[in-house]
């Protein structure tokens, strides 16, 4: 691929939704690389359960935008085999929860094949996981399982939070030689942002400081980036300066960006939607505790994660099960004021 020729003019930006940005990336990849295929349930004429693939089937045909039977394990395995032998499949799980039916192929096969075979092969596979709560779909359609997959060496696991990153990281993922798992929060699909119309990539292993601050570092992922930014705005009214880091990738974790920030602010708060215990926040906390940044801490590390419960249906309970803006404001405020 002639990467340089495909770089878009940065000035050529338009407003797109997160879903449209993903579709734009898929369209570019299908157009420029004949090895790329899309696979998933109802991604063809239906356009995908969240209208991400939209009308791509009409442009690229049913041989490349492939509706699979409702066979998550088999479908994922076909994608692994295709990736192993020369195609570049992008596999969509209809809901990330359904990926549990395919864990064997994801974790035992895709993640391990390169290592088990002594480096003789790569598995250039992309899988997309619509994730998260907030849609009233209850316990089997609302989970945030990214930490599960991030526990598996051999996988790369990312959580783009903006339309710009959703497109640029997906294009990078399709070019990456290893399996990349992309967790897309369903609530973000309709969020808007400025996105280049052409080709560009965003690194798969870098976090980004979304808001600079000096009193506390909030490390957030996916939808929680937006909640944390809103919380940081409210905190500034109280005179608290919060730095917000958009984690973007949880395997690998961009250690330097986090440690640099903690050395500067001397306080760490992790905000994530997955269940709190043994989650992303535990790893980031340990990473800081094991480093010299620990010596800079002026307060205990705080984790705000999902409640220790299956996702409830009732909307008030559903909100109560994941960190909300008010929770972030209140907890960060107490931490900075030494009230915790």
């Amino acid at each position: 691929m002639m990467v340089d020729e495909r770089h878009s003019d940065e000035a050529d930006m338009v407003e797109m939704s997160y879903a449209e940005a993903i579709r734009s990336a898929l369209d570019i990849a299908l157009t420029t690389d004949e090895r790329v295929i899309l696979m998933g349930e109802d991604i063809g004429v239906y356009g995908g359960a969240f209208q991400v693939t939209g009308d791509l089937i009409h442009k690229h045909g049913e041989d490349r935008v492939i509706d699979t039977p409702i066979s998550e394990l088999g479908g994922a395995g076909v994608a692994v085999g295709a990736a192993l032998t020369g195609l570049r499949p992008v596999f969509e799980f209809q809901f990330s929860d359904f990926a549990m039916l395919a864990m064997e192929q994801i974790c035992n096969q895709a993640a391990k094949l390169r290592y088990m075979l002594g480096g003789a092969v790569s598995v250039p596979l992309v899988m997309r996981f619509p994730a998260g709560s907030g849609t009233g779909a209850a316990a089997q359609h609302s989970q945030s399982l990214e930490a599960w997959l991030a526990h598996v060496p051999g996988l790369k696991v990312i959580q783009p939070a903006t339309p710009y990153d959703a497109k640029g990281m997906l294009l990078a993922a399709i070019e990456d030689p290893d399996p990349v798992m992309i967790f897309e929060h369903k609530i973000l699909y309709k969020s808007k942002g400025m996105v280049p119309t052409g080709y560009y990539t965003v690194p798969l292993d870098k976090s980004e400081v979304r808001r600079e601050g000096s009193d506390v570092t909030i490390v957030a992922s996916s939808l929680m980036v937006h909640k944390s930014l809103e919380a940081a705005q409210q905190l500034s009214d109280q005179g608290i300066s919060a730095e917000v880091i958009d984690l973007k990738s949880i395997r690998p974790i961009d250690k330097d960006t986090i440690l640099d920030s903690v050395r500067k602010t001397s306080r760490l708060v992790c905000v994530y939607e997955g269940v709190k215990t043994l989650g992303i926040g535990a790893e980031i906390s340990a990473m800081v505790a094991e480093s010299d940044a620990f010596d800079f801490l002026d307060a205990p590390i705080l984790r705000l994660g999902g409640a220790e419960t299956p996702m409830p249906y009732n909307p008030d309970l559903e909100r109560a099960a994941v960190p909300q803006i008010d929770d972030i404001v209140q907890n960060v405020s107490q931490l900075v004021k030494g009230e915790r």
Partner: peptide, 19 residues
């Protein structure tokens, strides 16, 4: 993994047909 290679074989066959 018992049966682990079966979908992978089908994927390889998909590659053969597609390319």
């Amino acid at each position: 993994i018992v049966a682990g290679g079966i979908p992978i074989a089908v994927g390889a066959a998909l590659t053969s047909k597609r390319l």
